[in-house]
Write a protein that binds this DNA or RNA. Structure first.
Lengths: 189, 189
DNA sequence: TTGCTATTAGTACCTAGTCATAATTCAAAT
DNA sequence: ATTTGAATTATGACTAGGTACTAATAGCAA
């Protein structure tokens, strides 16, 4: 079953999207055409060569790894008063939701809130000791969650941080985090 | 400051680890030696060529993306009795810990426990409504955390799951998760 | 048969290498 | 001072997976 140009190019796109590491030669075999035809197709569809595609995937991954270790807060911090309050925004994308239901996975809401609680503490080291959390409304793919952290109690070694997360005006998550700091690091988070 | 062979090879390794997309030519310039020397070094250190390195990073990333969307549990499930109990193992690597202190970030422990609590529920849909969690000991890079989930209460719409996570015999995390299921999905997790 | 698109072929060139051999440099030991 | 051996550099042939360009051929409709 030989395909016409249009169909072949259609299939070519999805094939390359699914298996980006495929070479022109392999594609030529797959579609029963010459290598030159595949190259013309890629030219028309503006699909780069296999080595560029591989590199693209790798660079993306590498950047992701880098930014994760540099910026240790999950979400974008838009306000930060050390030992007082902080606000971060996280947009829930495909990677944050259950693929079937498109509902956000709880640990991402937790991660946003928890890392904000860590960030608000004005100390070299802050670790979560305890947390009491409520998920009050589903978050769906595409929604932007605004997390607001407030320091509610500050002891010598422990700080209690309250975090409320909203979509628009609606509360979607709230949690009380008991944080340990600096010297007294028997516990973790 | 020209380096001797040993020091150069030492630096070469860390350079390539940090910037794996560097070519032999760039490395030769960086170290003030010929390309051939770099190639001999790579041969001795068993470091593959740049295109292989790029591919390696890309393949890793690609596999990760695939497995994340297929298998939605964080960690490896090694036992699962639906509506009864489940066990998963997660090895804490560099990406799970604070880069400075090498101590595990709390939300990864939470994610392992929470996703196991979701998995143990024998229903189409299970979402976390509430959770009460304690971090009882730090987890360090390289440690393997075994999470054990037990269903402790099963109501019509809610199921309570208790999860305890251990490194060896030591309790590092424990949490009570109140899960909603199926029809009654007003809340989320 | 002409005209047009699609396809295939062929050539020169490119990058970033491998593999093998040979030549050169340098420093330490005799 | 010379020799020896390791380290370094050079050279040439070859590879994969391409780009860029030109030219030839195939298929089909007006």
């Amino acid at each position: 079953m030989k395909l016409n140009k249009k169909d072949r190019q259609q299939m070519l796109q999805t094939t390359i999207r699914n298996t980006p590491f495929i070479t022109d030669e392999e594609l030529a075999n797959k579609f029963g055409v010459s290598i030159q035809t595949i190259r013309l197709d890629r030219l028309e569809l503006k699909i780069p060569e296999v080595r560029e595609r591989i590199k693209h995937v790798a660079v993306q991954h590498f950047d992701q790894v880098k930014s994760l270790s540099i910026d240790e807060v999950i979400g974008e911090v838009i306000d930060l008063q050390l030992d007082q309050s902080a606000i971060s925004i996280l947009e829930f994308k495909r990677e944050h939701v259950f693929s079937r239901t498109k509902i956000a996975r709880g640990h991402h809401l937790f991660a946003q809130a928890n890392s904000l609680a860590v960030a608000v503490i004005d100390d070299e080291l802050a670790l979560t000791a305890k947390a009491n959390i409520r998920f009050t409304r589903q978050v769906k793919e595409g929604e932007r969650v605004v997390a607001k952290a407030n320091v509610v109690k500050k002891g010598k070694f422990r700080t209690t941080v309250e975090v409320n997360s909203y979509v628009e005006k609606e509360l979607v998550f709230s949690g009380d985090f008991v944080m340990y700091r600096k010297e007294d690091v028997q516990r973790e988070g």
